[in-house]
Computed example of a mutant assay.
Amino acid sequence: MKIVTFCNIDTKLLDPSFTVENYEETSGDADIALIDINSIFDFEENKSASCKEKFVSIAILDDEDDYDAFKNFGIDAWIKHEDISKINELIAVLKKRFLS
């Protein structure tokens, strides 16, 4: 599974079986896009070059106001920054639900 990051995230949190790339250096065709409130416009401008036609977006929320900002961008899933250690569990669910 290929993940593209549009935000700063400790990639050590992600399962080592995943290929993780930054959107500025991606070879494209990512299955999952990780974004935060500061990278939403980078995501909008670059998602077609960075992701497969069918991909899942995960927004990392710092606070409740972030949700309101993201809801108009068609984000598939959200995770609170304080719960980021559970991101692999979320990815597993999304893989079964959206990417299978």
Rank of each mutant, 00 (worst) to 15 (best):
K2Y: 07
V4E: 01
V4G: 02
T5K: 07
F6R: 00
F6M: 03
C7M: 08
C7Q: 01
N8S: 13
I9L: 10
I9K: 00
D10W: 09
T11N: 10
T11I: 13
L14N: 06
D15V: 11
S17M: 09
F18E: 12
T19I: 11
V20L: 05
Y23L: 05
Y23T: 03
E24T: 11
E24D: 10
E24I: 10
E25R: 00
E25T: 08
T26Q: 02
T26I: 02
G28I: 00
G28Y: 04
D29V: 05
D29T: 10
D29R: 09
D29G: 05
D31I: 01
D31N: 07
L34V: 14
L34C: 08
L34Y: 05
I35F: 02
I37K: 06
I37D: 04
N38M: 12
N38A: 12
S39Y: 08
I40F: 02
I40D: 03
F41P: 05
F41G: 07
D42R: 04
E44T: 06
E44M: 09
E44I: 09
E45H: 11
E45W: 07
E45I: 05
N46R: 06
K47V: 07
S48P: 03
K52Y: 08
K52Q: 06
K54T: 10
K54S: 14
V56H: 06
V56D: 05
I58F: 03
I58E: 02
A59E: 06
I60S: 05
L61W: 13
D62N: 13
Y67I: 09
Y67E: 10
D68I: 14
D68R: 00
D68G: 11
K71I: 04
K71W: 06
N72G: 15
F73Q: 05
F73M: 10
G74I: 07
I75C: 07
I75F: 11
I75N: 04
D76C: 02
D76L: 01
D76E: 12
A77W: 00
A77N: 08
W78R: 04
I79H: 01
E82Q: 14
S85R: 13
I87Y: 14
N88D: 14
E89T: 15
L90C: 12
K95R: 15
K96I: 15
R97L: 15
R97M: 15
R97G: 13
L99C: 13
L99N: 10
S100H: 13
